[in-house]
């Protein structure tokens, strides 16, 4: 299924993640998944938020450079080969390239969640729908 991700540009310096988290806490917005991709100078903080619109706006108000994008979330079985067989392999077979992905907190027993961005959102969604439901 499609989910909205909020990403934020940060300089690679102490306290920058803290500043983002403080903004979200002040608005009582909880984070369901988070990943950081970094270079020596800067990073991209990507998050799945309980309320992406409110989170995006709050971060913007706090002068962060931020954006919202539709990406995919998929529920996979929490077993060896789960990620391989329900996500990686089907996408590879369909010729869809993964740009990035990260894991998601999932409370359900025996299930794991991942979020991912590919070069073809619609196609990837169809492929994953067939595999993971």
């Amino acid at each position: 299924m499609k989910v909205e991700q909020v990403s934020v540009f940060v300089e690679n310096q102490p306290g920058r993640l803290e500043a983002i988290l403080e903004v979200l806490e002040s608005k009582q917005i909880s984070i369901q998944a988070l990943s950081i991709s970094e270079t020596a100078e800067f990073g991209i903080v990507r998050m799945i938020l309980a309320d992406p619109d409110a989170g995006h706006e709050a971060l913007r108000q706090a002068s962060f450079t931020t954006r919202k994008d539709w990406i995919l979330a998929a529920e996979i079985p929490d077993v060896p080969g789960g990620l391989l067989n329900s996500v990686a392999k089907p996408l590879a077979d369909a010729g869809v390239n993964l740009k990035y992905f990260y894991a998601y907190l999932e409370h359900a027993v025996n299930k794991a969640m991942v979020v991912l961005k590919t070069d073809d959102l619609e196609k990837a969604e169809q492929v994953l729908k067939a595999k993971t439901g």
């Binding site: 991700q5 990403s7 540009f9 991709s37 270079t39 800067f42 991209i44 990507r46 450079t65 931020t66 954006r67 994008d69 740009k99 990035y100 961005k117």
Partner: peptide
Amino acid sequence: EVSEDVFSDEMQKME
């Protein structure tokens, strides 16, 4: 300064 117009969630694009 990185504005919203050039910011991307993909590292490849930022690089």
